[in-house]
Computed example of a mutant assay.
Amino acid sequence: MTSNANNITPRNTVLNADCISAMRSFERASVDFILTDPPYVTRFRDRQGRTVTNDDNGRWLRPAFNQMHRVLKDGGFAVSFYGWNKVDLFMDAWKAAGFRVVGHLVFRKRYASSARFLRYEHEQAYLLAKGNPTLPAHPIPDVLDFPYTGNRLHPTQKPTEALTPLIEAFTKPGELVLDPFCGSGSTLAAAQKLGRDWIGVELDAAHSETANRRLAWLQQRGRAAA
């Protein structure tokens, strides 16, 4: 979809919406960095029986990453978590959108999230590039620690401590970070703490409300400290 003069990319807000529709309303090349943890297309169910919206199909994969590529600035980066047993679907969507795969990240856990043929003690993500970005002056390691969150706010909650180095490495203060599958807002919280602007989109109304409350508390805390 071609952007027009009426398209505006909001800042510092969480949208309860389908991310594909939401991003279509954003201005082209208006986002500096994307950091997201989309559904893994694995029909995930945690020990409490909680599930993840749209984790039972991959129909959203291509259109969602197509819109991410459209709204990302040329020379920008995106980091996407993915499910290892569905990597073919994710890789197809990334490449079809126009992203180049330029790195792989492993997040090491001190616990096993599950165990079958192996004990699963890591998460993983790919570093994607739009165009030909400038090499970072101080590249971060491709293996990072992944503290346990307890998944209190979301069934697949990511720790802000694992996301902070990525935002710090690939953005500058005041730049805009997008998470189109923002869940409970971990990416947004990390961006807020680092002085970046942020925009989150979340389809599930309850998780969207959790993210809104979380970010409102951080913003109030920041104003009180100023």
Rank of each mutant, 00 (worst) to 15 (best):
M1E: 15
T2D: 13
S3I: 04
N6G: 03
T9E: 15
R11E: 11
N12H: 04
L15A: 13
A22R: 12
R24I: 01
F26D: 00
R28I: 00
A29E: 10
S30Q: 06
V31Q: 04
D32F: 02
D32M: 04
F33A: 00
L35R: 03
L35W: 05
P39R: 02
T42N: 07
D46F: 09
G49S: 08
R50E: 06
V52R: 06
D55L: 01
D55H: 03
D55A: 03
D56C: 12
N57M: 06
G58E: 15
R59F: 11
L61A: 08
P63F: 09
N66W: 11
N66V: 13
H69F: 14
H69V: 00
K73P: 01
K73G: 03
G76W: 03
F77Q: 09
F81L: 11
W84E: 10
W84V: 13
N85S: 12
N85F: 05
D88N: 14
F90P: 12
M91L: 07
M91P: 02
A93P: 06
A93T: 02
W94G: 02
W94T: 00
A96Q: 09
A97C: 04
G98Y: 00
V106E: 08
R108C: 00
R110F: 04
R110D: 15
Y111D: 12
Y111H: 09
S113N: 11
S113D: 14
S113E: 08
S114C: 12
A115E: 13
F117G: 15
F117P: 03
F117T: 15
L118N: 13
Y120G: 01
Y120C: 10
Y120D: 04
A125Q: 00
A125W: 06
L127M: 05
L128R: 04
G131L: 02
N132Y: 07
L135S: 11
H138L: 14
P139L: 12
P139V: 01
L144R: 07
T149I: 04
T149K: 15
R152N: 14
L153E: 15
P155F: 07
T156W: 11
T156H: 02
K158Q: 09
P159D: 13
T160N: 01
A162L: 02
L163W: 07
L163F: 03
P165F: 04
I167R: 08
F170T: 00
F170R: 05
P173I: 00
P173R: 07
G174L: 01
V177H: 06
V177F: 05
D179E: 05
P180A: 08
P180W: 05
P180C: 05
F181N: 00
C182T: 15
S184I: 04
G185Q: 08
G185Y: 06
A190N: 02
A191Y: 07
K193H: 11
L194W: 02
R196L: 01
R196G: 01
D197G: 04
D197T: 02
W198Q: 03
I199E: 05
D204Y: 03
H207M: 08
H207Q: 09
H207V: 02
S208I: 07
S208W: 10
R214P: 06
R214W: 10
L215S: 11
W217Q: 09
W217L: 11
Q219M: 07
Q220T: 07
R221K: 12
G222L: 12
A224V: 13
A224F: 07
A225D: 14
A226W: 01
